Amino acid sequence: MLIAKVTCSHHLETYISSQSINSDVVIACIDAFFPAVDKPTVIVTDQASIHTSDAILDKVEEWKQRNITLFELPSYSPQLNLIEILWRFIKYEWIEISAYKSWETFVASVEKILKEFGENYVINFV
């Protein structure tokens, strides 16, 4: 499981875990990624149930007061979701076939790519 904060300027922060993702994990990650903001911040989410749950909706007003806004993408729009674009590059261009030998090598390969994103692995949003 990966939760990531990615920007068009090649800045990436990730939260990697083997636990299942639920709304509580998403909330914890948002609060950890954005403990304080000094300018308006927009978080782009898809319409997955973990992003639209009552638990998330209960936090929206608090986040607004902290200058954080959630923006929900339209259904079926992976081309607008930066993390989906990142996954497509990882899956089809950057990950080596040898990464699939075992779960451990796969995880290590993905973590390496994520750590080197912006340096050795770059997406040009033109």
Rank of each mutant, 00 (worst) to 15 (best):
T14R: 02
Y15T: 12
Y15W: 03
S17P: 03
S17L: 03
S18R: 02
S18M: 13
S18P: 15
S20R: 07
S20V: 02
S20N: 11
S20K: 03
I21R: 00
I21T: 12
I21V: 14
S23Q: 01
S23R: 04
S23L: 06
D24V: 00
D24F: 01
D24G: 01
D24C: 01
D24K: 02
D24W: 00
V25I: 09
V25S: 00
V26C: 13
V26N: 02
I27W: 03
I27E: 01
A28E: 13
A28F: 07
I30Q: 01
D31G: 01
D31Y: 00
D31F: 00
A32M: 04
A32Q: 08
F33P: 00
F34G: 05
F34M: 10
P35F: 03
P35D: 09
A36N: 14
A36V: 15
V37S: 15
V37L: 04
D38M: 08
D38I: 15
D38G: 08
K39M: 07
P40K: 14
P40I: 03
T41E: 04
T41I: 05
T41A: 05
T41H: 03
I43L: 09
V44Y: 02
Q47Y: 10
Q47D: 06
A48G: 13
A48Q: 08
S49K: 13
S49D: 13
I50Y: 12
I50L: 10
T52C: 12
S53P: 05
S53I: 05
S53L: 14
S53F: 02
D54N: 09
A55I: 07
A55P: 05
I56N: 00
L57M: 12
L57S: 15
D58N: 07
K59C: 15
K59L: 14
V60W: 06
E62P: 03
E62R: 05
E62W: 02
W63F: 06
W63Q: 08
W63Y: 09
W63D: 04
K64C: 06
Q65P: 12
Q65D: 11
Q65F: 06
R66I: 15
R66W: 09
N67I: 08
I68K: 11
T69V: 10
T69N: 14
T69I: 09
L70F: 07
L70V: 08
L70P: 00
F71C: 09
F71I: 04
E72A: 10
E72R: 04
L73W: 14
L73Y: 11
L73K: 03
P74H: 10
P74S: 14
S75V: 12
Y76W: 05
Y76T: 10
S77W: 07
S77Y: 12
S77C: 12
S77K: 07
P78F: 09
Q79L: 11
L80V: 14
L80E: 15
N81M: 11
L82E: 05
L82K: 03
I83F: 04
I83T: 13
